[in-house]
Design a protein around this nucleic acid. Sequence first.
DNA 1: ATCAGTATTGATACATGGTGTCAATACTAT
DNA 2: ATAGTATTGACACCATGTATCAATACTGAT
Lengths: 149, 149
Amino acid sequence: MHSQETHLTEIEIEDRLKQHGYRLTAPRSVIVEAVLRHNRPFTAEQLVAELGDGPDAIGRATVYRTLEVLASVDVLTRIVSPDGHPSYISGAPGHRHHLLCEECGTTVTFTACPMNDLIDTLATDTHFLIKDHTLEVFGICPSCQESRS
Amino acid sequence: MHSQETHLTEIEIEDRLKQHGYRLTAPRSVIVEAVLRHNRPFTAEQLVAELGDGPDAIGRATVYRTLEVLASVDVLTRIVSPDGHPSYISGAPGHRHHLLCEECGTTVTFTACPMNDLIDTLATDTHFLIKDHTLEVFGICPSCQESRS
DNA sequence: ATCAGTATTGATACATGGTGTCAATACTAT
DNA sequence: ATAGTATTGACACCATGTATCAATACTGAT
């Protein structure tokens, strides 16, 4: 019911972009490679900092746009923490939620969603047409608990 | 299991501020009155726009600080939508979640939280110390569904 | 292999949402 | 009434993200 994420390869990701009608460009390859190096949630600004200078610098706008594109083809998931700061997590097609360590960012993905029953009840009772929900869990992972004490 | 919110009065809110050691000031009264006029979620910037000019204008920083204070004493709840934009909802002490209409902002509060079981399972399986979770539901309310068709 | 068409890029400027500073003000307990 | 201190608001600043637009580069068709 929960698992570490299995990652797509660069080639699979680029295929997926093509299938959705996106062009394969040098900056996108660089960004995909950078994304694959992260196995923790990262922010757009972190990527900008990594890729935004040097000889083959990639523009801020391109980084933001590409992250959006990758999220739209289910290569990345964008999650928003309770303080409103978004970050991206590699690989998360389908309906998933995450358990994040607030200290080190370790992420556990789980597919068990307890919302289905609740959504039915809410829909019946309120007559809302229910479209979406957020559900993310935050805590401290075992190794951070240890290094605290 | 779900309900429209019952509102505190201005006096009750000001008592609550005092009980927490906050002073009663003119700007805070103005902000509390403004908050009570809203029965839909609102953003900090909306309040700034309402109160930020005219003869008794209230500074942007004061508005932001006061909203934080009101949230800290459970007069307001701050929720963050999937796109990362925070808004405030009047009156929500305790553990509550919300069902929001994406079109008109109508909000239904519910206390049924399906997370308890899941959290126990997650804690057992991952050994995380679980601290917090987000859970908000978004949809279209009955009256907006009607005016669509 | 070349070409034309168009998606993409990146520089820049701008927009939005929020925070830090600090002197001046105003609340509260005494 | 006064002293002490929380609070205010002006301002500058920061962080995150977006719009514009000319220049570039990918792609499919030839």
